[in-house]
């Protein structure tokens, strides 16, 4: 694992946001790592721990707790579909189904500890997310950092066309 200089410079800047305790920089550093490498490897955990003067377990326990951190690589485009009540009433589960169909993703093996499913060609990965705070305009989903609201299940294929 090679941390590029610009990435480390960014990290050094972020660490200055926490003058009282460097440990506070665990989440922001993990975000930068995940953004760059797409997931957080064991090596990265050790690297962040060394960088912040922590035990590796203090970083690993953070990685394993938060649903926003991944320990394995997702697809080229990672999709999150809101599962919670207002979206579910508006068709969130149907949206998940049609996205899986359009993207060739098999979700039959997902469970609490492995919530992400990846398409056979590796282009898309998908998981359910809990309420994304746009409940009036469901069903909603995120593709990477892009937010999409009122996504009709019928238009799933069209949405994926934007991500090739």
């Amino acid at each position: 694992m090679q941390i590029p200089t610009e990435l480390e410079t960014k990290m050094d800047e972020v660490i200055t946001h926490y003058p009282v305790s460097k440990r506070s920089a665990v989440l922001p550093l993990l975000h930068l790592i995940q953004h760059h490498f797409r997931f957080i490897s064991d090596e990265a955990v050790n690297w962040v721990a060394a960088k912040l003067g922590l035990e590796p377990i203090q970083v690993l326990e953070v990685v394993t707790f938060y649903p926003g951190f991944r320990q394995t690589a997702p697809g080229k485009f990672h999709i999150r579909v809101c599962r919670t009540l207002s979206c579910a009433m508006a068709g969130g589960y149907e949206l998940m189904e049609s996205l899986c169909k359009a993207g060739n993703i098999d979700r039959s093996h997902v469970d609490h500890h492995h919530p992400i499913a990846i398409s056979t060609d590796g282009k898309y990965s998908i998981e359910f997310a809990e309420c994304l705070a746009s409940c009036g305009f469901g069903p909603v989903c995120m593709v990477e950092d892009d937010f999409h609201e009122s996504v009709k299940p019928e238009s799933a294929a069209e949405l994926l066309q934007k991500y090739l």
């Binding site: 305790s21 506070s24 707790f65």
Partner: peptide
């Protein structure tokens, strides 16, 4: 000084003391 600190997808980080633990770099 004011800084932006991003969470990582856990509802319990909205609870103020969970939020504080999270901001300290721990499980919330």
């Amino acid at each position: 000084e004011i800084y932006v600190h991003r969470g990582a997808g856990a509802y319990i980080c909205g609870e103020e003391t969970g939020l504080i633990e999270s901001l300290e770099g721990k499980r919330p």
